[in-house]
Design a protein around this nucleic acid. Structure first.
Lengths: 411, 411
DNA sequence: GGCATTTGCAAGAGAGGAACACAAACCAGT
DNA sequence: ACTGGTTTGTGTTCCTCTCTTGCAAATGCC
């Protein structure tokens, strides 16, 4: 007998929960909106909106502002606005060569942010956790003392189990099955949920909600760094796979007769488009890091052939891999992030060319390839978005029994 | 300004709709269930279930049977059962070398079914439509005269736009942008919606709901025929992509230095694992069709080295491609259908081997590769499932204002 | 007959819909 | 600049729909 998920039944409360969620999510994603726009957008009646917004105001999650005059006849509708300061999250990121922290308010305002350099190479969990805890402390010290985050989101360059927050494999850090989520929760001691996810998945989330992929429901975000990560959004929902390991597009075999990959396989996509192979082709040391990448870009801008050729070759392989993914996923938009957003001007032509050659005509016609707009901070902003998700899914849980703001203990 | 989907607001009716849908879906997927099991599974109260089931009974979609005695104390709970005959769909399939039709009742009972041979090669739309209309007529003649299907599902070996039912590309039929859905709707003249989809997507749906992938929410179905199609299910929902073109895994570039593919690209996966290359490697004519495939299998069973080597090579490439897809999708189960279910016994070892070598350890551990259990009929059954979807999503639309069975005009 | 379990029924509570009176702003005409 | 008509949003009241709660009755096993 197959076990069924329990509790599929809906009840009356579900409706209110869903409607509150729709309103808060709308405000979070689009910014302040008039009440009447909310009425039009949700299809609910004025009475219903009034009651729902009233609850949110009573819970201090939302404030109403004087109406704006917009030249149309009729009484102006008050503007409904989220109060960013009353629900903030802490976003953390462990990138290949930096650590970052941000305090982000509901609605997406970055209230404070900091990024520090990190030496490339393997690190002990405890070092990283301690560094992140320091960053988190400095973030909190810049904000009002009574401001407690409602959640913590962490992005890490590695594959992460969504089930338990275990970092299953992070070659840049030298981690295998490392309990980052648990340790961080202890070290931060905030009594709020700590969600950990892959950097590229979070980049996809951020670009989807606030960046280059806004408005598209099926997207592929390709994050180039030392390796290549991917974040896939299908029908507005992140494709996480059964355990959150999904999106590891860097390890699709694309040239089985090619180079060995650090994952143990041969001919993975990242062996043809990763930072290392770009540097090698351009005549720089493979481990030159971002300084060497900058040099390659400068060379290319100056028209030096070796750099241009190296970029073209990366562009070609980028296009080949994207063609396969476009055929598999039929996305609306492909967003190139990290390293790939930097090299985009130099590789766009080759990418389009390979897509024309190798992707099926029907999906090819519908897709556009664009550089990321959120830059290096995309994964950090995605971590914040992830931390907001429980609130967006059920704002009622943050409101007391009809109005009083309630501090939840944990997830 | 980004356009918002309208009508996101929920109302009381939404709840009932969702609950009716949950009950009908549950009965459809798992068969007869007692009322008390429904209570346990949905989390609703007895009264609510009583009322919901009552409506379904009044609408003749469901019947209640005398309680079954199962040795437990307490008053036996009546068994709730779908009435298959009161909601049937017509399923059609255009495969590479056959056409098929089935009348399927709610709950998944195949009430009548027929498959006829088709000559391989290009066909005119009108020929196919006329043949299918004949099959449909014979299907209807075997059933009670007053039985009108509530929907028609059509599977076709080609990529299909879910937006308009246009067959964008079907190399086996020689079709480009052919309006199969519209023409078929005219020819059948049933005044019910005709849904068209890709064969592999439907195979995935069938194996997911009633076959080898039952119980798993993230699956990949790989359908081998002349070409290679794929159906992907993410978190219980088919991955269709922005226009329904998703899942074309046969055209992932996997060996860019390899053979030309009929799609115009080079080194697509299907050039290494399709029927043609298997036959060629085994020393049979590439266009030998299923007879030649049978011969290769017989050779292999008899231990002939050339056939075994050919199968092993196909198995190796199958494993290479699957490794990439496992990394990208992190599925719970990979189901091998069509040609691949036939050769599964001969290739399983090589597939597992390549997965071990090339897939990342974390997702690799969680995935199992199994042959399809529904055989050649998987896409046909999937077409039926697709045709049931509107009913499953909103059974209330098939019930009148509180009970009377209503015949809807169209979608 | 006792007990556990399930059903049936009536009353109740939560949530949104519909209709109405009222208020605020715009527009046109004087 | 003022006035009146028009448009649109607000707030209130009552209604409907749907699920829940609580109690009583029915059933079947031990």
């Amino acid at each position: 007998m197959i076990m069924g998920r329990e509790e599929v039944g809906q009840r009356s409360e579900t409706v209110r929960r869903a409607n509150l969620s729709a309103i808060v999510r709308e405000l979070h994603l689009r910014g302040p909106i008039s009440r009447s726009e909310l009425v039009a957008w949700t299809g609910l009646t004025r009475s219903a909106i009034r009651s729902l917004v009233g609850d949110l105001v009573a819970g201090d999650l939302v404030a109403e502002e004087a109406a704006v005059r917009l030249g149309t006849p009729g009484r102006p509708s008050p503007l409904v606005r989220l109060v960013a300061e009353n629900a903030v999250v802490l976003a953390l990121e462990i990138a290949v060569d930096s650590l970052a922290v941000a305090t982000v308010g509901l609605g997406g305002d970055v209230l404070w942010q900091r990024r520090v350099e990190r030496l490339r190479g393997h690190s002990l969990l405890e070092e990283i956790v301690s560094d992140l805890a320091d960053l988190a402390a400095s973030a909190r010290s810049r904000r009002p003392a009574d401001e407690t985050p409602i959640g913590v989101g962490v992005g890490v360059a590695g594959i992460v189990s969504r089930v338990d927050g275990l970092v299953a494999f992070a070659p840049n850090l030298g981690w295998i099955d490392v309990p980052l989520g648990d340790r961080l929760a202890e070290a931060l001691d905030l009594r709020v949920p700590v969600a950990v996810a892959n950097e590229a998945d979070l980049g996809a989330l951020a670009e989807f909600r606030r960046g280059a992929a806004r408005g598209a429901d099926d997207i592929l975000y390709v994050h180039g760094e030392v390796g290549v990560g991917g974040g896939i959004i299908v029908d507005g929902r992140p494709l996480s796979g059964i355990a959150g390991f999904g999106g590891e597009i860097g390890h699709m075999p694309i040239n089985p007769a090619g180079r060995a990959c650090r994952c143990g396989s041969v001919g993975c996509w990242e062996t043809e488009v990763g930072e290392g192979v770009l540097l090698a082709r351009a005549g720089y040391p493979v481990d030159g890091g971002s300084a060497a990448v900058d040099a390659v870009l400068a060379d290319a801008a100056a028209g030096r052939p070796q750099a241009l050729d190296a970029l073209r070759e990366v562009g070609r392989w980028l296009g080949i891999g994207l063609a396969g993914l476009v055929n598999v996923l039929n996305p609306r938009r492909v967003v190139l992030g990290g390293l790939f957003s930097l090299i985009h001007p130099f590789v766009a032509d080759r990418v389009e060319e390979e897509l024309d050659r190798r992707a099926l005509a029907a999906p090819r016609r519908l897709v556009s390839v664009v550089p990321a707009t959120l830059g290096v901070d995309a994964p950090l902003l995605g971590a914040a978005e992830m931390a907001f998700d429980p609130l967006l899914a059920d704002p009622a849980a943050w409101l007391g029994p009809r109005g009083a703001l309630v501090q939840l203990e944990s997830a």
